[in-house]
Nucleic acid binder design. Structure first.
Lengths: 188, 188
DNA sequence: ACCTGAACACCGTTCAAGT
DNA sequence: ACCTGAACACCGTTCAAGT
């Protein structure tokens, strides 16, 4: 609030004339930041490309603004852009053959995985690219160096943990989840 | 820190003789809280039951202690119980037919969805059961009452959004994800 | 109608001084 | 070796007084 007041050339306490508290401010700003997620989606995409792009953009927005985690925590805010995002996902899922109940279940699953990925990738995403790679490499080495007898699976998987970019890993997760949702929630 | 000092009948500042800062304390306490997640898993379960139970328990632990979100955010802490949890999941996945690379990818996906579900369900999980149901019902009504022309999919899905308990919804998500991982990461 | 400025209660943390 | 107590810098927020 102090920094915002300074940026506005006003006393921080003046902000409280316009919003109830910091949380309301964060929700309002957060919804503005969803603008790029929900608008300007390129047209004539298949339903599953709409789902994928929306989730990828949402994750990118959350990564770019870590304070938006508040948005996810208090979900749903039911502010304009969040409502549009929900409608976009649900409509795409319906187009993909999900019935209303299945679309709701799939929507919850997609949001959960997107928020989770953003939470986990957040800290490292804030680093410069070189540091990011170094951090991931250090983690791989740590798993690689675990005691042979107690951590066989971790040692074997070590070269593949935190492999590639977080974006690539999220794409794999999203593919698997969508595939699984299609199979278990619709019946193909 | 003030509350902890009081509970220990000591000045808050005395804590700094034993830990570097609050973050280190939180990580250490957090790892203790993973004890129940990782130990005392009932024996002779199928690999997929081990995966499901571990994820469900992790989510429950995160829900019970919201401050542990810090744990997820700074993952991986590579403290004892967290390492055991990782090994448990990776070993189960290997037993389920995932190769090391596939197990690593599946591990990332499972953790992401578990952390995301805990984040999203956290606020409401803290409420008494009756308030929880009332909150979900209010959200359903909000989606149900959206303008007909702009939110058709949301209105149609409204009765099924936030339906049942958060635990049940997580079980559905986990089923779908595991199924999808099996199909896309292994080839069945 | 909006802002200022002082004040409040509360954080995590440091450090000299005690035992 | 460990703790106390005062102090510091910093939060979000309130409210009487200004214009």
């Amino acid at each position: 609030m102090k920094a915002l007041g300074q940026a506005l050339d006003a006393d921080p306490s003046a902000i409280y004339r316009h919003v109830e508290d910091k949380d309301e401010l964060l929700r309002a700003v957060g919804d503005r930041l969803l603008d790029g997620v929900v608008n300007g989606l390129p047209g004539d995409r298949s339903w599953d490309q709409v789902v994928r792009m929306t989730c990828r953009r949402l994750r990118a927005a959350l990564l770019a603004q870590p304070e938006l985690a508040a948005l996810a925590r208090d979900a749903p805010t039911r502010q304009p852009n969040e409502l549009r995002l929900t409608e976009t996902l649900l409509a795409a899922l319906r187009a993909g053959g999900f019935d209303p109940a299945g679309a709701a279940a799939a929507y919850h699953a997609l949001i959960e995985v997107t928020v989770g990925a953003a939470t986990i990738d957040g800290a490292v995403a804030a680093l410069p690219a070189a540091d990011r790679r170094a951090t991931y490499a250090a983690w791989r080495r740590a798993y690689r160096g675990l005691p042979r007898d107690r951590y066989p699976a971790s040692r074997a998987a070590a070269p593949f943990l935190y492999r590639g970019t977080a974006d690539q890993r999220f794409a794999v997760t999203l593919d698997a989840l969508l595939d699984g949702l299609l199979a278990t929630v619709t019946g193909r």
